[in-house]
Write a protein that binds this DNA or RNA. Sequence first.
DNA 1: GTGAAAGCGCTAACAT
DNA 2: ATGTTAGCGCTTTCAC
Lengths: 325, 325
Amino acid sequence: MATLRDVAQAAGVSPATASRALSAPDSVSSGRRFKVLEAAQRLGYQPNRSAQALASGRNRHLGLVLPDLANPYFATIAKGVQLEARESSNAVLVADTDEDPRREHDVVRELQTRVDGVVLCSPRMPEEQILECAARGPLVLVNREIEGIPSVTFDVASGMRQTLLHLRALDHRTIAYVGGPETSWSDRHRRRGLDSVAGITVIDLGPHRPVHAGGFAAADLALETGATAVVCFNDLVALGVVSRLQSRGVAIPSGMNVVGFDNIPGSTYVTPALTTVAVPLQRAGREAAMLLDPSLSPADAAPAQLRLDVELIIRESTAPLTPAP
Amino acid sequence: MATLRDVAQAAGVSPATASRALSAPDSVSSGRRFKVLEAAQRLGYQPNRSAQALASGRNRHLGLVLPDLANPYFATIAKGVQLEARESSNAVLVADTDEDPRREHDVVRELQTRVDGVVLCSPRMPEEQILECAARGPLVLVNREIEGIPSVTFDVASGMRQTLLHLRALDHRTIAYVGGPETSWSDRHRRRGLDSVAGITVIDLGPHRPVHAGGFAAADLALETGATAVVCFNDLVALGVVSRLQSRGVAIPSGMNVVGFDNIPGSTYVTPALTTVAVPLQRAGREAAMLLDPSLSPADAAPAQLRLDVELIIRESTAPLTPAP
DNA sequence: GTGAAAGCGCTAACAT
DNA sequence: ATGTTAGCGCTTTCAC
């Protein structure tokens, strides 16, 4: 394998010049630059990443920690991180914590020994642990906000408000909300939108596991309340609600309206297709990765806290309460 | 940040001994080992990965290349790779190719500059390009076999045979097969199982895109043939077939049976739950990562070609053709 | 703009 | 079992 020395020698310049020709082309006269590039090409030169990293103190590796790679929500964020990473010639180290918040802390620390910065999607890790991790190296939060740490979140309160306005316009007056994990930033902020619309009564069905199975129990509760629509913490839960309602013989939307959150791919595949709040997951991943780029964030600036807009997508699972005659 | 020298000094030993105490404990007397470990602990020593990598020539990084992270099929494989990597104290660099086979080659090569070995899930990259990549460094294929390259695949022909036997037992005599991409190893091998069961006529519906949308067109074709059951290349397609049939008013399983492949999580969420062939995706990821461990594979041995067993999971989308009276 | 030289922090012969 | 020594391949002052 050809080294930089070989290239320099072949080009008749010093290793320093060869290095510069490759990484800071403008600081080398065009003649020599050309010779170096040509030699590198000819010898099939591939820089040794480890040596670069050791000498420069930077890896060009980004870390990404998330609860579950097989969850389309997180997978989509991961795609966004990848996309941005590739454009800034970084690589992404992904670590899945298997939904175990206790494991997250160790995973982050382990990753921090290997990367220049970490994107952390951790709905449940205790705040003080996150602060501790942030002290060890650059870190950006996704879907959660902590004072003093850069983050990318979604304006879910607005999403909730849009949802309620939509349902009210369809003549619904009593709706049920299937909550997510109690400790989640994301659920707290959805709830902030719950009382933002006059003329709608919201029945709180309490916290539920944010997965398909969580929707089963919730569906039965919803039916009991007399609500005409059920709004769910996320699409996975909403899908569970739909399944359960259908198997109990309740038609959607005629017997009950259902709204999800997130707009994961599965929300369009189900029948009826789910009305849901689209959150720009991939964009969030990109933005998070960008916030990690040191050249873009002067160290003295306040940590950026992005709040991305969301949009209600109306599909088949919501309809006027009483259809026109 | 404390370095190994600092630790050595604090423990009153040479850097070499300190290094050994940490990485090959048995080669150091227990007294000194203890002192080193204690000093490391006290100073909060964290080895510098770049330096280790440069000196040893190994990164403890594994690469994983796949078409689409948001596809549950690949996401599950990724989880398996992660699991095994963690146990062997490796980290995983994931690269998504956005389903673009032309991009795969570059992505793999880029990754190979950063990792000790690559797990490649690439249904469509041309064989010669894969061979070229394999020549550059350790590489294991998943869900594809190429002579001379270690791989982990599934016995999908057996899965197909199990499916046909099941359908025959339910009195089906004519079934339709919705194929996947023509060039895919995986589709070729499914087809090998197609003629393995006597007494069943299989109508080939031709290649389809292996996603939900692909199932729509296929559903209409299937209806036209008079088949009583449709077997699909994968669950995503099967889900599409189900959607389309239902929206055309065909009940499942009474009007048509549907079988998928892969047993992705979504296959249980749909109504009716999908009969499908479960393939051990996570296990495949693990095995692939293990094959990459140099300590387990003597360089002179023939490349391992694992073929994992699959199992038909019978759910609600298949039923006897003519129910008992 | 260019080169010489000094490391980055660690591992692995080699010698003892 | 331990220490000495030499790099691994690159980046980056510093002087010119």
